[in-house]
Design a protein around this nucleic acid. Sequence first.
DNA 1: AAGGTGACTAACA
DNA 2: ATGTTAGCCACCT
Length: 104
Amino acid sequence: MNFYKQVYKIVKTIPAGKVMTYGQIAGLISTPRAARTVGFALRASINYQDIPWHRVINSRGLISIINPQITKKIQAQLLNKEGVQIKIIGNNYYIDLKKYLYQP
DNA sequence: AAGGTGACTAACA
DNA sequence: ATGTTAGCCACCT
């Protein structure tokens, strides 16, 4: 099975109002160190609309997206729309992992 | 086949 | 407490 598919499969299981981290997803695929590759997979996945890529953030609960088309602001709005509280700290968007992290 | 790159992390200064 | 540095794994050229 493709690494990408694994990532997509897991991301799809994240319920609305919850989030997961890159490292966590990598861990579920049993390659805990491949967090970067998870991000890579997600960047490509934005083209497929059925993947809630916006529910994936970094280990500190910050949005680390670097996409000119899909900005942090957009992601923050999407999450907020699903009921996730976003704390805006400077130019960063912070999410309370203790509250919103999804763990199967 | 080999090296460069990145939506990450954890460890250090 | 912020800012850097160095590993990591899969993908692309």
